[in-house]
Nucleic acid binder design. Structure first.
Lengths: 186, 186
DNA sequence: GTCTATATTCTGATAGAC
DNA sequence: GTCTATCAGAATATAGAC
């Protein structure tokens, strides 16, 4: 792993665990094990650090969306299955960029919006009904925030992840069945 | 409105729009139109400012939960109806405290967790099925983040709020009907 | 490519006048 | 109750040595 990647991952890690407030250049430097000058050789300022993380997210998300489109269980189930935070490279980049967006980074918001719309488009193409598609995507959003943000929305203590996801996938089936019946009755 | 309340609301406003990063004492002072000394008379340090906002949220949330329990359409529909951000005093305090929690404020997280559990308890008592209750609360969470965070998760451009909420309430009915059928088949 | 040293600006907080 | 003046420490960024 290159020094550049190590620095970027340290920044990501700090965004996730400490928030934008804690992701100072000093903290990044300490975690990545380089000096301040070393950091500034690779990223000329803090903005460049944020831009690089956003680029990393775009690349990972593009790949994920292709996987979602090709998933044998369909995009809806894929979305809900994968919305539980497991600490994948995509999860980490996504939450890091969400933190940036929360700190009013316009570029971060724009990228998140594009990813979100891609999800919505795939789910809509599968289920047909915009209302049901919206509900499924919102379910994924809620799950993501519930599970994924340390210190964000509190996690359900009950959720022994695996089985609670199975339950939610059942709910997704109920919604898909309803969407299908809407299709037939048109 | 007292000076104290004006200061606290300025802090809340900055948390929402600029994030914890931007909610500096200087910024609060500028927005509230008082001097730094004036602020520090009412709140002896920044921690006191955060604690006061959390207290404000607790009071507003306690009242809201009583309203939710007594709503004629039931807690589930109330939750989804009210989860769309409309800028009420509760909405604002809630998002402000979410921002604090994201900045690793333990007290903020604890209060959010209690509110969240109260919602879950009411919805569960109404629908009977934990899985369906969880889905409904997650739907509210997703909605809240989608609509409520400026620069957070992007808002659907399609959502002409009123009708998209009506659609989601339809989805809630589908879920409630399914929960009821689960109850009967036990 | 990476480091040290330093300049500059911002943030939170104190002391005391009015 | 509210203000001005001021400070210590942290954060970003620059310059230049190795």
């Amino acid at each position: 792993m290159s020094t550049r990647d190590r620095i970027l991952s340290a920044y990501e890690e700090l965004l996730i665990n400490e928030g934008p407030r804690g992701a100072t250049m000093d903290a990044v430097v300490a975690l990545a094990g380089v000096s301040k000058g070393g950091l500034l050789y690779h990223f000329k300022n803090k903005e460049a650090l944020a831009a690089a993380l956003i680029t990393r997210l775009q690349e990972l998300a593009a790949e994920d969306i292709r996987t979602m489109a090709a998933d044998p269980e369909g995009p809806s189930r894929y979305l809900v299955r994968e919305s539980v935070y497991v600490g994948s490279a995509l999860d980490r980049a996504l939450i890091g960029v969400v933190r940036l967006a929360q700190a009013s980074d316009a570029e971060a918001s724009a990228v998140l919006e594009r990813i979100h719309r891609d999800w919505m488009d795939l789910v809509l193409a599968e289920v047909g009904s915009p209302a049901i598609a919206r509900a499924i995507v919102l379910l994924g959003d809620g799950l993501y925030y519930n599970e994924g943000l340390p210190g964000g929305w509190p996690r359900e203590k009950s959720s022994s992840t695996a089985e609670s996801v199975a339950e939610l996938l059942e709910v997704v089936e109920v919604l898909k069945a309803h969407a299908a019946s809407l299709q037939r009755s048109r």
